[in-house]
């Protein structure tokens, strides 16, 4: 069984007038790094929140590793939100312990190793960390889980180019043929060569699902350039 995620007829409407995700059917395999791309308001974050069980679909279903969304899938999905969600008054090491208590698949030694390689003192409180360092710590916590699915919502937004490189390298170094990484981003050019496949979303619908090299081969341009063409306003 090579399928990891099976999405069938997935729809989410917040009220009668706004349909955020509109009838998406999609199957994602294991062992891929997939970019979730689309303009603002195209439904990326809504889709992500349904994948990790923070929102309930209006219609349709999602299965991860053959199971509907619930406690079993939540235990196997590692989620990096698009905003800082760590308490400011806590220290890094307190959060490492917290993640260890909360997630069975959390590997504390791996987290501490990664923190050390970045010279981040685990005794530091979050409120004293820079924005970029907070992002890195959050990513380290998420990537230190041994999950089936990593869902990263805008992991490289608002960090400097060196931090961006570190984040991309962390994603590559943690590559596991049994797991899939789904990355939502606007910064396509920066992340393109790390991706296997891309999903384009538009108005809540699935506009395209194909491989990066397919787009380059077929159109003779980068995914970034192709995206700009498709979504030109």
């Amino acid at each position: 069984m090579n399928e990891l995620i099976e999405i069938v007829g997935l729809t989410k409407s917040y009220d009668e007038r706004s349909v955020a995700v509109n009838n998406i059917t999609l199957t994602l395999p294991k062992g891929k790094i997939v970019g979730l791309l689309g303009p603002n308001g195209s439904g990326k974050t809504t889709l992500i929140k349904m994948l990790n069980g923070l929102l309930k679909p209006t219609r349709g279903s999602i299965k991860i590793n053959g199971r509907f969304i619930g406690p079993e899938t939540k235990a196997r999905v590692a989620y990096l939100p698009d905003r800082n969600c760590l308490p400011e008054y806590r220290t890094v090491s307190e959060m490492v312990a917290y993640f260890g208590d909360f997630y069975e698949d959390f590997e504390k030694t791996r987290a501490l190793e990664m923190l050390q390689s970045l010279n981040i003192d685990p005794g530091t409180k979050f409120k004293t960390l820079s924005k970029g360092t907070k992002e890195k710590v959050q990513l380290i916590l998420v990537m230190s889980r041994k999950a089936d699915l990593y869902v990263l919502d805008e992991p490289i937004a608002g960090v400097d180019p060196a931090a961006r490189d570190y984040i991309l390298r962390t994603i590559i170094n943690n590559y596991n043929p049994e797991a899939t990484v789904l990355i939502s981003t606007h910064l396509i050019g920066d992340i393109e060569q790390v991706l296997d496949e891309v999903i384009f979303m538009r108005y809540g619908q699935l506009a395209l699902y194909t491989s990066v090299d397919n787009i380059r081969e077929k159109y003779g341009k980068s995914v970034d350039a192709y995206f700009r063409e498709v979504f030109a306003c």
Partner: peptide, 14 residues
């Protein structure tokens, strides 16, 4: 593959 992918900063499958 893994080392070279990390070095080149590209996807390991590629």
């Amino acid at each position: 593959v893994r080392e070279l992918a990390a070095l080149a900063a590209v996807n390991p499958n590629t």
